[in-house]
Design a binder for these strands. Structure first.
Lengths: 245, 245
DNA sequence: TTTTTTATTGAGTCTACCTCATTAATATCT
DNA sequence: AGATATTAATGAGGTAGACTCAATAAAAAA
């Protein structure tokens, strides 16, 4: 009984420092969950490994028998996040017909993710992207796979002539995900509440339809058709005038 | 003479540890330059205050008589960066007529900044935005002023009917700057060389004109004009037929 | 029960931000 | 010019947090 806690007279009614051994997988999951939670709450830099350990019910050193570094822990958290995100998005996409609807779905889905798990999204955006050296190859691959879903839709759109043939799919993908990201930051700073439905419609409409007023004189193909039609109209009118005289 | 360096027998041919006093403004500029350089090269987290001090020719403690913290140093660097960026962009914008050309200029300018000073841009993107608590109010204001330039152009475009009346300027601004940012990251990861001209055209064309193929059936106003013309053509043809019979 | 294995520990190292009492270079005064 | 006052500059700590490792004890195997 006295062997339970190292020091015989320790009262320790609070600490659950029982030193119980658990199967590796279970402990790893505990630590991973704890890390996800703490990172989401406080951000990467502000979270400490000691705090993550304590929340998982272990001591700081234990974390390092499961993960090589604080960074590795973050990467593992990100992997879990991405894998479920990709799976959800893939199944959602399969249920939707039409390139335009699929693009609208992707935009809305991304906004929903931001809204529902903003803490973690913020950490990922801050830590993952700008850190080229520490950007784990596997995470880069997951990210590629995720945004690759949008790329595939865009390419199909071009192939089926739903989208203009002269667009560059990768540029449009950047426009979509970059635009969403900035729009979300805007809401975070302004502290207004994010209306996912409205914002995703605004974004989708702008991306799909562009911003230049079509009343103008700027659409080459259409205006060519128009001038040709006008020329024919002119010719017919001349004929008509002549026949009426 | 022996009072020059504290310890009499110090050889110190390398160190410029002369302990010379400089006017505050000059020293501050030295430290600021050094910080900008080191931050750009190594990033915020990897740069150490000791290194910045050493490069500026002072000792670590000296930095703290000029800047309250490492973070404050970064904010000062960012302020200098933003102020010159805003000034350049404002003068450039004044020399350009037409909303569409102005938007193309803004896009190109931003891409040029990324290409020419990528190290610092990366630090700013990583450190400034996601850190709400440490985000100095003055920097937020500078950022607002910078992207506000785009906002003004967009609003003018709507007012003069060059742009569609139903667009949301702030959303378009997010699309522009977010899209540029992601496109640049893409190039960084792929390690291909960034062609500013091509990319800015691709981005501008997509944002201005949208991605949906106009050959389709989707542009209401234009097709209205078409149907009216067709109706006139019909009428003329009928008249022509009748007169020829 | 005894032995082996290995998960868990916590004390200790190291690095980097930051503080502060001391020092000496310049400016001011007589 | 010499004495005094001011304050820029210093560098020796303080502290926090990531990371290491030899020792320990809980579970498994013999």
């Amino acid at each position: 009984m006295s062997t339970r806690t190292a020091i015989g007279h320790s009262p320790a009614p609070r600490a659950t420092r029982t030193r119980t051994r658990r199967p590796r997988a279970e402990r790893e999951a505990q630590i991973l969950d704890s890390a996800r939670r703490i990172f989401s709450e406080k951000g990467y830099g502000e979270a400490t490994v000691a705090e993550i350990a304590s929340f998982a019910g272990v001591v700081e050193g234990t974390v390092y028998t499961y993960f090589a570094s604080k960074r590795a822990l973050l990467i593992a958290v990100m992997r879990v996040f991405f894998e479920s995100l990709i799976a959800e998005t893939e199944t959602g996409l399969r249920a939707i017909r039409g390139v335009e609807n699929q693009l609208r779905f992707l935009i809305r889905k991304q906004l929903e993710i931001f809204a529902s798990d903003f803490g973690l999204c913020r950490v990922i955006l801050r830590e993952a992207r700008p850190d080229l050296t520490l950007y784990d190859e596997a995470i880069l691959e997951l990210n590629r796979r995720y945004t690759g879903l949008a790329l595939a839709v865009l390419e199909e759109g071009v192939a089926t002539s739903v989208l203009r043939e002269n667009i560059v799919p990768s540029v449009i993908r950047d426009l979509i995900y970059g635009g969403i990201e900035h729009a979300v930051w805007r809401f975070v700073f302004s502290e207004r509440e994010l209306d996912v439905g409205t914002l995703s419609d605004q974004l989708a409409d702008s991306i799909l339809g562009g911003i230049v007023c079509p009343c103008g004189n700027e659409l080459p193909e259409q205006s060519e058709t128009l001038t040709r039609l006008e020329r024919v109209a002119d010719r017919l009118e001349v004929s008509l005038d002549r026949s009426q005289s």
